[in-house]
Simulated scan of single mutants.
Amino acid sequence: MTIASLLEPVTGQPGPARLTHAADWMQGRTLYGGASALVAYTMATRAFADLPPLRAGQIAFVAPVGEEIALSAEIIRQGRNVTQVRSEIISDGKVALSAFWLFAEGREANALQPAPPPENWPGPPEDTQEVTHSFAPSFVAKNFELRHGQTRGDDRGATVRRWARLTEAHDLDPVSKLVLMGDVMPPGAMRVMQRQGSISSINWSFNVLDPESRSRDGWYLAENASQHAAAGYSSERLRLWDADGRQVLDGIQCVAVFG
């Protein structure tokens, strides 16, 4: 099942939609977070033509997203350079996902500060070993190829880092691909859990650093790192770099840690 098949029911018109090809993207009872965010993003871009490039997104994962949903999108404010759009996924008559998107035209730069390359660069993906999917959710095994992004034996702390790329041929635009892949790694808190338990993303806020990113052979280095974990929650930093070490996405996330 292709990602295009999942997005086909998203026409840009508000109202009911049935995601008939959602099975390969499910994570337990709900659609994988990157896929559900992409559904909401696609709703926004198909509802309103000629939007500027996406610069930032704020996603609230409120409730499980299944096959039977309803979609909505509205422009909150539209200025000369910036357009702000809210889109939502409704399930069983209640909000299951609420997203706020910031689209903005580029301007002449008055500040220049390139993002630094990743610490402990693992080398290009083609030089690293493939990761087996024995412990990964089924949607990862069906849709992604993973390679190691951390040196074995090193103290990885509360960080999960992997090279990742989609296994299917697709025609996603660069930003849609970043939205889909930006949440693919499990939380870094997984590495410091004291006992087995489930983990659930509550929100995700990110900035798009390069809306035209087209990484070599589709590879991106994805990292989730817990900045602070206590009281059943973890504050995570999520980052994506292209195959040449250029950061293209920077985000944060609150994760519930159960058990």
Rank of each mutant, 00 (worst) to 15 (best):
I3V: 14
A4P: 04
L7Y: 06
E8W: 03
P9C: 01
V10Q: 07
G12T: 11
Q13I: 15
D24G: 12
R29F: 02
G33P: 02
A35R: 04
S36E: 05
S36C: 09
A40C: 08
R46G: 08
A49Q: 14
A56P: 04
I59C: 04
I75W: 03
R77Q: 13
Q78L: 05
N81L: 08
V82G: 05
V85S: 07
R86V: 07
R86M: 08
S87H: 01
I89V: 15
D92V: 03
A96W: 00
L97K: 03
S98C: 04
F100L: 15
F100H: 10
F103G: 00
E105H: 08
R107M: 07
A109M: 08
N110M: 08
N110Q: 13
N110W: 00
Q113E: 10
P114I: 13
P116F: 00
P116E: 07
N120S: 15
G123Y: 00
G123C: 09
G123F: 01
P124M: 06
P125V: 02
D127W: 01
D127I: 09
D127H: 10
D127P: 02
T132Q: 08
H133W: 02
S134R: 15
A136R: 11
V140H: 03
A141P: 04
N143K: 04
N143R: 12
F144C: 10
F144A: 08
G149T: 12
Q150E: 11
R152I: 14
G157H: 10
T159Y: 01
T159K: 08
R162D: 12
W163F: 08
W163P: 08
E168S: 11
E168T: 10
A169I: 14
H170N: 13
L172N: 09
D173Y: 00
G182V: 07
P187W: 01
P187K: 06
G188F: 02
Q194F: 01
R195C: 11
S200L: 13
F206E: 03
N207H: 11
V208G: 03
V208E: 00
D210A: 06
P211S: 12
R214T: 14
D217S: 13
G218S: 11
W219N: 04
Y220N: 11
L221I: 08
A225W: 00
Q227W: 09
A230S: 12
A231G: 10
A231D: 15
S235G: 07
A243T: 10
G245Q: 04
G245H: 04
G245Y: 01
Q247F: 03
V248H: 03
V248C: 11
G251Y: 01
G251E: 10
I252F: 07
V255I: 08
V257C: 12
V257G: 10
V257K: 09
F258N: 12
G259R: 05
